[in-house]
Write a protein that binds this DNA or RNA. Sequence first.
DNA 1: TTGAAAGCGTTACCAC
DNA 2: GTGGTAACGCTTTCAA
Lengths: 347, 347
Amino acid sequence: MVTISDVADHAGVSASTVSYVLSGKRSISESTAERVRGSIAELGYRPNARAVALASRRANAIALVAPLRADNNVPVIMQFVAAAAMAARARNHDVLLVTQEEGVAGLERVSGSSLVDAVIVMDVEIADRRIPMLTTLEIPAVMIGHPGHSQGISTIDLDMAGAAELAVQHLAELGHRSIAMLGSPSAVYERKSSYAIRFREGFERARTEFAVEGHWYPVEPSYQSTREVLQAHLAQHPETTGLVVHNESILGEVLAELADEGFRVPEDVSLVALCPPDLAVNQRVALTSIAVPTADIGAAAVDMVLGLVDGTAHAESRLITPVLTIRSSTAGPRPAVQPLDDETRTP
Amino acid sequence: MVTISDVADHAGVSASTVSYVLSGKRSISESTAERVRGSIAELGYRPNARAVALASRRANAIALVAPLRADNNVPVIMQFVAAAAMAARARNHDVLLVTQEEGVAGLERVSGSSLVDAVIVMDVEIADRRIPMLTTLEIPAVMIGHPGHSQGISTIDLDMAGAAELAVQHLAELGHRSIAMLGSPSAVYERKSSYAIRFREGFERARTEFAVEGHWYPVEPSYQSTREVLQAHLAQHPETTGLVVHNESILGEVLAELADEGFRVPEDVSLVALCPPDLAVNQRVALTSIAVPTADIGAAAVDMVLGLVDGTAHAESRLITPVLTIRSSTAGPRPAVQPLDDETRTP
DNA sequence: TTGAAAGCGTTACCAC
DNA sequence: GTGGTAACGCTTTCAA
């Protein structure tokens, strides 16, 4: 292994000088800098990350606590992870993956052993047991999600409540008066994942706000569950013409089932989804949808937490405004059977 | 921060003694060991991972190069990552996530800077440009996948060719004589991802081996593509009664499309999928399927590479035997129009 | 069974 | 503008 002293010797300077030309933390004459760079290239010197971390008190790494469970939103999780990893690399940091299962202990471990400089926690629950512990950590943290009480820990997420309201608003403005929300699997609500709870709350609030009839259901990621929920609801509420789907993995099933039952989209039923754009576009009908801006959120989480690390930022809670993209799955409800009534009344 | 010397002072021993009670690398009298453990607990001492890494020449971390792109098999990728992370933790190692985009440079970086002790590379291509570089690394590597030439680098994967053959064999033995394979998106074949190429090769070999007619098609992850490919094939080959699907994201669409066209599964068409079991089970028909044993492969990859790190193992290539689980999507083809012919022949 | 001390490869402070 | 040299917090050899 080539060390900094090897480079120093080769360039005829001291080790500290080599360190300084690398870090730029003090001015070096162009001539020696050039010489040092030459030696570095010639010898193929690579700074030893372990020694750098120990001496500089910076690991140049952040921990990412990710829910790697089988879930309905795996692609979204993956996009968060990818975005965070890329953003971290762009700022010269690496990402240490910590599984959700490690829980509180995992956070204690990576922080207590100074493995990383900061931590990003995904899939936060409304009353997440990790939050109190995050406040005691010596390293900064940011959560992707929006718990009930962030207790001074930075958070960032899509405004899920706003997203649900936006979906309902869109349908309501088109004239739909009865709307059903097909939600995430029940386990997601049971563990009170903030993204799902917030979306549901937004849906319920929007119901009042826009004076529409509204019902919501958890849906398991299966054809069976999708079919049952949809059939049961439509049997009880045949007046329903609007659907809000917050469950990526059943989109195809919902559309198939609607087709099976003779409902056309958007002529008979309008549908708004919360899902990645590519999923929305690749269905039998291009779906009007709200996207989770995973790339933005992942990158912002990294920026926020590194800002805390170097002291250039303070804790904050960011909520990203949802954007609805209108495609082909939403339209005004058809004018009911009015024309016929008119005719029978004519004579 | 509590250091090892703090503990040593508190326990009235030397730092080396503390180190040895922690590592167990030399015998310590039970009395002092007890005293040291007490001090550790009392002071809340956590060894500094950076210092440990530097002094012991072990980072206790492995790099995992994962394709975090949007792809058709995101859930499988995620399961590999989760399995590797858990296996690593079980062996007291952490996982550093390296994105596929970092490519060769990423491997050079984490290895050259001694960030990690070993590397696991996923989604290997047939002639992967990273292989020659892996051979030059100072740290061991294993690839998840099965390239054309592993050049002495350990590999592990499901026997994808065998999986395809198994699928065809199952259909052939049921009596199907014309089989279509709906494969991964074309981009996967273009970049020559080993898993897809191997599966296709196995399919083509099985065609001959079991003397069946066989055609394969790449399918994009969309309703549109699924529909087009299926309709085009069935129009040209109405005799097809067997389907092999190597593309998780279109399973629902395939079944929906078959239903739309009036084909019953398995009465008219039998279908074998290569996909996670939960996906197979949650379709409108429970699918006969071959699973990728992600947990086994991920754990084995970690075991193999850590075995190389501590010198207790040698490079090897492992291929895991595929297992087919019969569910409700496969049956013998219906007896064609034979009965009618018999009757016309009777008189 | 235990202690002292020399590294591990950098960084950054203190001199000049 | 540059060099010397303590740290950084631990592991491990050498001695006792």
